[in-house]
């Protein structure tokens, strides 16, 4: 699919009609594009006024994965997870494309935020708290996110560090523990540089501890504004990375939690429930 973004937006406007005001592009990639939009009516015509991030998926090979993400997110509601508002199909230039209207999270991705420099320890703890809570919510549904990284963590506000609110987005790579995998044997899914050792080996039977590792890397990067292994997955999978080495000036209590999250053996990593409580405590005391 090679429709230019402007044409795609125009085509989406036509297809969705007056229910949506489609604004500027928020991002795009090989599989889809996201637009800022305003939704004026629900599918049944009931008036509403929602700020949305409208994602249009133009790679039909991703249909199963998208359907899975929709199924996950329709089942989960949590303040630290983007809310799925609506989904459907659009006919654009003779092709059927899926769209998802997500709750628009005002703010910026953590990746974008780190372009301005490292975060204070309290802010890192606040992000850890929120993402750990989001992980708990999906863990209750036996879902593993598999793609936690700074691009998939949205920062809601730019308030004081301890008031930072983070939202975990994009469950496109997520996997339900009971369901079959979409990838072949030993194909790793996720973002290189942020995958746990077991994920990078292509193991399918991942647990929340894989997400804990990815979050540990993400938060370590947030402390220093640089990736602890320069995005090299081979180093991430084999070296015992320590936040205490990369951020020697950060809070000892915080880096000791991060060090445990980066343990190579999953059982030695703390569980999301512990992390949610510990980061909540640290966010208030740091």
């Amino acid at each position: 699919m090679t429709i230019p973004i402007l044409r795609l937006a125009d085509a989406a406007r036509t297809a969705l009609g007056a229910r949506f005001d489609i604004g500027h592009e928020l991002g795009s990639g090989g599989q889809g594009a996201v637009f800022r939009a305003r939704r004026h009516a629900l599918l049944d015509g009931t008036p509403t006024d929602d700020a949305v991030a409208l994602k249009i998926h133009f790679d039909p090979q991703q249909d199963t994965r998208i359907a899975r993400e929709i199924a996950f997110m329709e089942a989960v509601r949590h303040p630290s997870l983007a809310t799925l508002l609506e989904h459907g199909e659009l006919a654009i230039e003779g092709e059927s494309m899926r769209y998802i209207a997500w709750e628009f999270v005002p703010g910026a991705s953590l990746s974008h935020r780190l372009g301005q420099g490292p975060l204070a320890s309290a802010g890192v703890a606040a992000i850890g708290r929120d993402v750990a809570r989001a992980m708990l919510a999906i863990m209750d549904r036996q879902i593993v996110h598999r793609d936690i990284n700074p691009k998939n963590v949205m920062i809601r506000t730019n308030d004081a560090p301890e008031n930072l609110c983070a939202v975990l987005i994009d469950l496109g790579c997520a996997r339900h523990l009971d369901r079959s995998t979409l990838t072949g044997a030993w194909d790793a899914v996720g973002t290189p540089g942020y995958m746990s050792p077991e994920q990078s080996r292509g193991e399918h039977d991942l647990t929340c501890f894989s997400d804990v590792f990815s979050l540990g890397l993400t938060l370590t990067e947030a402390l220093t504004a640089r990736h602890p292994a320069n995005h090299r997955q081979d180093l991430v999978s084999t070296m015992r990375l320590r936040a205490s080495t990369f951020a020697p000036d950060a809070s000892t209590a915080l880096v000791s939690v991060l060090d445990r999250m980066l343990e190579l053996r999953p059982a030695f990593r703390p569980n999301p429930a512990f992390l949610a409580d510990e980061f909540a405590r640290l966010a208030t005391v740091l």
Binding site: M139, D140, E198, R201, E203, D205, T207, S210, R265, A267
Partner: peptide, 15 residues
């Protein structure tokens, strides 16, 4: 062994 790590991770993750 990936198997041992998978096993312990699943046990530790089970609520």
């Amino acid at each position: 062994s990936p198997l041992l790590q998978t096993v312990t991770a699943h046990v530790a993750a089970c609520r």
